[in-house]
Computed example of a mutant assay.
Amino acid sequence: MQDSPVTAEPAVPAPPTRRPARRRWPIIALVLVCLTLPAAALAVQNPGWFSRSSGQPGALPDRLRIPLAEQAVSALENAPQIEHLGHDEDNAGPRRVMCTADPFGIDPPDAATVAEVRWVYAQHLCVIGQPGLPWDYATKSAGPVAVGLGNPPVVRLPVPQIDYRTQVRQLIPARYQPMAFGSFAHPQLVASLRQRYNHEVASKKTS
């Protein structure tokens, strides 16, 4: 009797040895450090660089924004374009002109001090009214403005009966136009102006 042939079972390959995953995070961290060092160096040399380059509303550092706002307000409150608003509507007596401004841009754009700034670009709000006139009924001017800080200062505003957006593009450099078509980056300035007007003008009795 012949023995039955023995069929050899196919060899099962051993599972591959898993190599431990390489820890790549030290390399990634090194790359990130190399990329951030140049920007950090720029920030140390010129702390206002990021804010001036961000292109966001309110990006001017306070050391420029606050004193430039004061100069813009002074120019606006003495500008003929503002002073003559609404003269045909209310001739009941002396009027007060009160303004606020929120600068969002400057020219030259890399000016580091107030003395270097030649033009200020800002959102403005001016209110004009006689004593006793409520805020809601007072004449107002609002929107983007270009103020030249010469002697005397120059105020440039969009005028009625001409396409508004075209005028703004002509007044405001392209880098600042997104902010020009926006609103106040610091709305507390508007609230403060309204409080001042109510206290100093609206609350006063007419003689």
Rank of each mutant, 00 (worst) to 15 (best):
Q2E: 12
D3N: 11
E9V: 07
P10W: 00
V12I: 15
P15G: 01
P16K: 08
P20L: 03
R24E: 02
W25L: 12
L32H: 01
L37Y: 09
L37A: 15
P38A: 09
L42Y: 03
V44Y: 13
Q45R: 14
N46I: 03
N46M: 04
P47V: 04
P47G: 09
G48T: 13
G48M: 13
S51L: 08
S51E: 14
R52N: 13
S54N: 11
Q56L: 14
Q56H: 11
P57F: 06
A59W: 05
A59M: 08
P61N: 10
P61K: 07
R63C: 02
P67F: 00
A69Y: 01
E70H: 09
A72K: 02
L76A: 10
N78T: 15
A79S: 15
P80R: 10
I82D: 11
G86Q: 06
D88W: 07
D88H: 06
D90W: 05
D90N: 15
A92M: 05
R96A: 14
V97S: 10
V97N: 11
T100A: 13
D102A: 07
I106P: 04
D107G: 11
P109D: 13
D110L: 12
D110S: 12
D110R: 11
A112S: 13
T113R: 10
T113V: 02
A115K: 12
E116M: 03
W119I: 01
V120D: 00
Y121D: 00
Y121M: 01
I128H: 08
G129R: 06
Q130F: 03
G132H: 04
G132A: 04
L133I: 09
Y137S: 13
A138K: 06
T139V: 13
T139Y: 08
T139D: 15
S141G: 11
G143K: 06
A146P: 00
V147N: 01
G148I: 01
L149V: 02
G150R: 12
G150S: 14
N151L: 08
R156M: 09
P158N: 05
V159E: 14
V159F: 01
Q161F: 11
Q161G: 00
Q161N: 14
I162G: 00
Y164M: 02
T166R: 10
V168P: 07
L171E: 05
L171R: 03
L171Y: 02
F184R: 08
F184Y: 14
F184S: 08
H186M: 05
L189A: 10
V190E: 15
V190K: 13
V190A: 07
S192W: 04
Y197K: 06
N198W: 02
E200S: 10
K204I: 13
S207Q: 05
S207P: 15
